[in-house]
Write a protein that binds this DNA or RNA. Structure first.
Lengths: 168, 168
DNA sequence: CCTTAACTTCACAAAATTCTGAAAGAAGCG
DNA sequence: CGCTTCTTTCAGAATTTTGTGAAGTTAAGG
């Protein structure tokens, strides 16, 4: 009868899950993510299957189908989540791809590329021989440096992960 | 007479500077920074001295003293910019600390720490023996991994920078 | 000390964003 | 093919965020 007692094997404590979802989402929001994507993502991350349907998301988070749709579109674009059709159904499942999402998170390549572009323009338009131009050039070098570093870092992570958690 | 001809040594082409400032600020905004801090920061970055007064910032960006104040407070808190008093004056100068600002940018330690805290709670409240709990644990391991990696990366950058640009 | 220049804080108007309900659009299933 | 179930789009209401003017605070300079 008591929902607290059916922990192992049965339905999870919805209260506790929701509490975690909201607190993790809050952290993501603070780091710059939009509210709905953050909440949807946190919910998916804490689901046992690693995936949920639109209806399940709407129910747990108490948001409209429209909100789910918008959040999922954003998450899919940024490769944090993938969408898959349940065969023989018009229901869609949204899934966090195990270890792929945080790779997406660190994969700021597009952002860095644009910064580099802007900085190159800066060097040109301010003059490579000016103090400001030199500052730009150095900053540009920094970004070029971390760009390759991040790739190597993720390589090392994959090795480390395999050792620690097995391949899967 | 022609402002275009007085490039070397004279006043810089205000038009070109402003254009760069706004376009670089736009990139920062897109990456999640607030508008005013982004614009103020871009302006400082493209000034030859690497520093400007409140009045200069207000004039170039066409914003009120209040806006400058708010933006600078934010930038100082996040260590992107430092404030210094001009001796014997009540004017303050805001300065980008050469190579320190992008270190601040990559120094997301506080953010990562909070994520780690939230994830640890997640492992506990969802159960370390559940699929969701295991996913959390792995994500947690990932953040712990990159935390140390980033420190080492910045070490390497300092060495690389010294070689390329001299100590200063 | 009093004046004045400079920065900060605060309340509010304006602007941008977010979320919803409603309607339209796909796609399985009989 | 039409019915039904699910998803997406869209216009607008509600909330949140942003930037300003004005008043308040601090500190230099007479």
């Amino acid at each position: 009868m008591n929902p607290m007692t059916e922990s192992a094997g049965g339905a999870r404590d919805a209260e506790a899950v929701s509490k975690f979802v909201e607190s993790f989402a809050a952290q993501l929001v603070e780091a710059g993510m939009q509210r709905m994507p953050a909440r949807v993502f946190a919910a998916l991350l804490s689901s046992d299957e690693g995936s949920m349907t639109s209806a399940e998301l709407g129910e747990q988070l108490r948001i409209s189908p429209a909100a789910v749709s918008g959040a999922v579109r954003y998450l899919a674009q940024t490769h944090m989540v993938s969408r898959e059709r349940e065969p023989g159904s018009r229901r869609e499942r949204y899934r966090v791809h195990g270890n792929q999402w945080y790779e997406a998170l660190t994969n700021r390549e597009a952002v860095i590329k644009r910064w580099e572009g802007a900085l190159r323009e800066g060097v040109t338009s301010l003059g490579a021989d000016t103090p400001a131009g030199r500052r730009m050039a150095e900053t540009l070098a920094f970004f070029e440096f971390i760009e390759t570093e991040i790739v190597e870092m993720m390589e090392r992570w994959r090795v480390h992960r395999e050792k620690t958690f097995g391949q899967e």
